[in-house]
Simulated scan of single mutants.
Amino acid sequence: MPETTPDPSARPAAPLIELDGASQVFHVKGKDLPAVSDVSLSVGAGEVLCLVGESGSGKTTTARLAAGLASPTSGAVRYEGRDLTEMTRAERREYRRAVQYIHQDPYASLNPIRSVRSTLSIPLRKHGLAKTTAEVDRRVDELLTTVDLTPPESYSGKFPHQMSGGQRQRVSVARGLTLSPRLLIADESTSMLDVSIRVSLLNMLTKLRKEEGVGFIYITHDLALAKYFAWEGRTAVMYLGKIVEVGPTQQVINNPQHPYTRALLDAVPEPDPELAAQKKAGGGLLSADIPSLSDLPTGCTFHPRCPLAQDRCREVVPTLQPVPGDVVQDVACMVVTDPGADGRPTAAAAGTTGGGGGGGGVP
């Protein structure tokens, strides 16, 4: 058979959303607060990227940059290869429809003077997805049923103050689904839900990803949720505005490399007493205090808390680098990627990882 010549014009599809060296600096009382520093990540159709880290690590600010709710101080944000700042009005409208955001706090994100029906119908009418009253009612009922607010007629006429926190959060998820988005950014979208509803909603989102090709950026500080929802995707660990480890979720959870990732996993409660006894108390951190963004440590910002810190960690800022060997993660830790001559152990060799037990339960 004759050999086929590759088409030089054929290029791999651009990711749905891409952050390229994006940074966000806030100016507060004469000081610069680097909420996000030089973050690069991408999410394609049908992919899921989970952002994990402590409160204040920059997860929500990163998500807001991806959603176009804030402009980066430096770097770029692209949708299907197109820089957001260079989009035409029509391209911007398409981007707004394709990328939807589920806010963390449903008490603040839902308009208190709009009913559930009004909240869900406005985007439907604005984008021409439902024109008649009957079409609006049918679509609203479908959305409420999707998020387990049934029977829908019992909820469509309610206002936010008439619902519980979990019900409000489900309305927020329904609003994010109104325009059939291609990328859904979920910021702690299940934190107020009961366990049974939480699992049902995550399964519904997984179905959207697998059957409709919807991409996800899922933000959480709960590693059990990251393991459950993003097991087939990737996880990025953030600390003080920077990504310190990124890779396939299975590897990040079961074989963490960065000492901060190991500390997060060691902090997950373990129901098995024998496994719990194997974990180091407190994850082995030197300090529980998180440095202030207004007065960041020199060099690696994690070194004041890191049990593996060396002298060079106080002077050199680490960058994401591949880990030597068979490990597939990229890690921002010189002790891991370049152990040096002092013979100190890497994160992987410093003890048993917490991944086998951490986050193993159903969220």
Score class of each variant (00 low, 15 high):
P269F: 05
D272G: 09
R314F: 03
P273D: 00
S191C: 05
Q257P: 00
I243E: 04
V362P: 00
L202Q: 13
R78M: 03
S71R: 08
V244I: 12
R312P: 06
E212W: 02
D295P: 00
G357K: 04
L223Q: 06
R96P: 04
P2T: 14
L177F: 05
A276L: 04
L293G: 06
K210R: 15
T4L: 15
A277I: 06
V199Y: 01
A70N: 11
L225W: 02
L320I: 09
A348W: 11
G325D: 13
A10S: 09
P363S: 10
L223T: 11
P72S: 05
S57W: 11
R198P: 00
P297K: 11
L183K: 01
T150W: 02
G247H: 01
Q278C: 12
T298A: 15
V327H: 15
G215T: 10
P322D: 00
H258F: 13
M87G: 02
Y239E: 03
R182G: 08
A348Y: 07
P152Y: 06
P181L: 09
E153V: 11
D20R: 07
D272I: 05
L177Y: 01
D38H: 10
G247A: 02
G53M: 08
V237N: 01
F26M: 13
L144F: 03
L202H: 02
L143Q: 04
G351T: 03
L16T: 15
S180D: 14
G157A: 06
K59L: 10
R93S: 13
E274A: 09
R78G: 08
A22W: 11
S189F: 08
G343D: 09
L184N: 02
L110T: 05
L179Y: 07
E315R: 13
V136M: 10
G351Y: 01
L296D: 04
R170V: 05
